[in-house]
């Protein structure tokens, strides 16, 4: 389980931090359609377009590879913290966890420490 998570996260950060540099820079499907059909010019700059990581590059870092890679890693780490935190908070507490608590209740204390 731990090993699976470590390998999975390593692959994800490798994609975001290094492989993304080699991604196709061509317009994506929707951008292409907007150009082709003729509504591309209705797109407005996002209000976050001046942010430090806007367009997957770090403001002030000139090297494209480094700039894009850092932005990717920051973004992936942010997603990991937010999504991981949210799903961890929502999770069902398992029966094994409950029985461990009842087992530990003999020597009391721990549960009441937070009061």
């Amino acid at each position: 389980m731990k090993r699976f998570l470590v390998v999975g996260l390593a692959v994800s950060f490798l994609l975001a931090g290094i492989v993304s540099y080699y991604a196709s820079a061509h317009p994506d499907g929707l951008e292409r359609v907007a150009e082709q059909v003729g509504f591309a010019d209705t797109a407005e700059d996002s209000t976050t377009a001046d942010g430090p990581f806007a367009d997957y590059s770090v403001t002030g870092v000139d090297d494209d590879r480094l700039s894009g890679g850092l932005a990717g890693i920051v973004g992936a780490a942010t997603v990991l913290v937010l999504a991981g935190g949210l799903t961890w908070a929502l999770r069902r507490r398992t029966a094994s966890g409950a029985s461990a608590d009842s087992g530990a209740s003999a020597d009391s204390g721990a549960d009441h420490g937070g009061d």
Partner: peptide, 21 residues
């Protein structure tokens, strides 16, 4: 307890995967 960390990993992988056009 088992699937929540996987969900965090899945979100991270999707973010990374979306960067690779």
């Amino acid at each position: 307890d088992r699937t929540a960390p996987i969900a965090g990993l899945v979100a991270t992988f999707v973010f990374a995967g979306q960067m690779v056009n």
